[in-house]
Design a protein around this nucleic acid. Sequence first.
DNA 1: CTTGACCCTATAGCGGCTAGAACCTTCATG
DNA 2: CATGAAGGTTCTAGCCGCTATAGGGTCAAG
Lengths: 132, 132
Amino acid sequence: MEAQITIGQLAKATDTKAVTIRYYESAGLVSPVTRTEGGYRLYTDRERDRLIFIKRARHLGLSLEDVKSLLGLADDQSAPCGQVDSIIHEQLERVRARLKDLQQLERELDRLEQCCQADTVADCKIIESLSQ
Amino acid sequence: MEAQITIGQLAKATDTKAVTIRYYESAGLVSPVTRTEGGYRLYTDRERDRLIFIKRARHLGLSLEDVKSLLGLADDQSAPCGQVDSIIHEQLERVRARLKDLQQLERELDRLEQCCQADTVADCKIIESLSQ
DNA sequence: CTTGACCCTATAGCGGCTAGAACCTTCATG
DNA sequence: CATGAAGGTTCTAGCCGCTATAGGGTCAAG
């Protein structure tokens, strides 16, 4: 006989907000196994594990859509894992692209920050640089 | 006598979409100097410059709210430029924080990608790592 | 005068939540 | 058994910075 917990308990156990869990449900990621007569959602360890999985995957910056795919794949032990690889690989590429952008941005902001020694906007190199 | 242009011409001149320009107007960033009898927005060089300013500032990753502040400051030549500095500085800090996060993320994704040599999900280290 | 390119407003959607209103359920206590 | 607090329910709207769509009106050239 498996223990059943409410959404609040699941929230606490996984360090997720109850509203977020409901949101994930609406996105098709986790559903309660059943409900009380009064309509309270009830979950088991399986859902807790699923939520932890989601948290880890989200921590990697994956979209809910990707997380959903991963969950689907994880459920099917005999599935080929090429799709898993490609989800991770594409995310890595996105992260690298974003890193490049941000590094460029850092240089620009740093340069801008250095160049302003003025007191008023009239002489401000930053404003000047933006206005050109 | 200054030349007046329509939103489409302004859009082309600044490589911005007309819808976006209207959106900026709703956010209080740029307004047409006047309108035709039929209601068409009309702009001048001043608005074109303003839009270019916005584009540059947005390129630095600044929020529309920050851009709005910068525009306000740029309009007042006698204003002290400390506020300008701090907007840029805070953005730089945000970018650096994000960079740190993303670098960490890159390492994690890279490690994950390396570690999967399996054929099926059953042996997939990625799924395993997420499920733990 | 007609055509076709352009413009107008208003509304809804994206992602991933978060906040609030208005109400209902559960459970420990008196 | 009644009560009240804590926690649950659904629904709707908001955040950001656009983008897309519908259903119209305007403008300038031929």
